[in-house]
Nucleic acid binder design. Sequence first.
DNA 1: TTTTTTACTTGCTTTTTGCAAGTAATATGT
DNA 2: ACATATTACTTGCAAAAAGCAAGTAAAAAA
Lengths: 138, 138
Amino acid sequence: MKELKQRSTCPVSTSLDVLGDKWTLLILRDMVFANKSTYGQFLQSEEKIATNILADRLAVLEAQGILTKAVAADKKSKFTYRLTEKGVDIVPIIIELVLWGAKHCSTIADPNLLAELQTGKDAAVEKYKQLAREKALA
Amino acid sequence: MKELKQRSTCPVSTSLDVLGDKWTLLILRDMVFANKSTYGQFLQSEEKIATNILADRLAVLEAQGILTKAVAADKKSKFTYRLTEKGVDIVPIIIELVLWGAKHCSTIADPNLLAELQTGKDAAVEKYKQLAREKALA
DNA sequence: TTTTTTACTTGCTTTTTGCAAGTAATATGT
DNA sequence: ACATATTACTTGCAAAAAGCAAGTAAAAAA
């Protein structure tokens, strides 16, 4: 069981104890916006996470109850990672990162997603949370 | 000038290139919610950031146009750090971290802030953004 | 004029990351 | 049945980042 040290009782600080690095939220982004759910799929992302880092972060996320790991339906040699409700609640954080990056940095965002977020953020957040929940049941 | 390498053109990834570590968003939290603006004040926070890390992060934030550095009004030996509009736009990210940490982790959050965020998030976000802007003018 | 404040910098150790290669349990093709 | 491929890791090592203690330097206060 991977343990994390808690630097203080502040909620921002404690959230960062779990999510504050360059890779964790990218894995969750891939689950929410790219429908990814296996180790092999996470490895294929553009940012090229190292295999040991990916294994470590998945273990932390599982230990923290943000996702669950189960043998895949089709193959016994494959695992499927799914978001828990604690994981689904990270969707708003990811969406704020999309909006900030798209507004202030040189990035290429999906125009449809961006338009959706800019015209009705609350509805879009709910939509992506619900989609994430449905994927977790499949 | 501190440079950061951009791992991809994804807005989430690019935001994390800048903000994805354990300290950067704590400095911004202190500016937004604790009215801090000087090196010495940031050092006093509960999480005990090291002096070299703080100096490094302030330089990155300045290079990225998230905050500005100026000689303090009262003392020539003191600097005042202020949020730019790009910095003010990080407020929603911090607020989502507050909400997630308070809901899912063992933390102690200010009950007034929490109630305010839970009853009317959008209004509260605007309020703290506006307060941050006003501080930047003072 | 000495001491204190303020904002760092430097040197060193420890931890984390990144990279390449290796392992092991299925699963597939012939 | 047997060899090859897929999938999910682990291991070892070098490089980068973080953490810690001490030192520096300009300005302010006593």
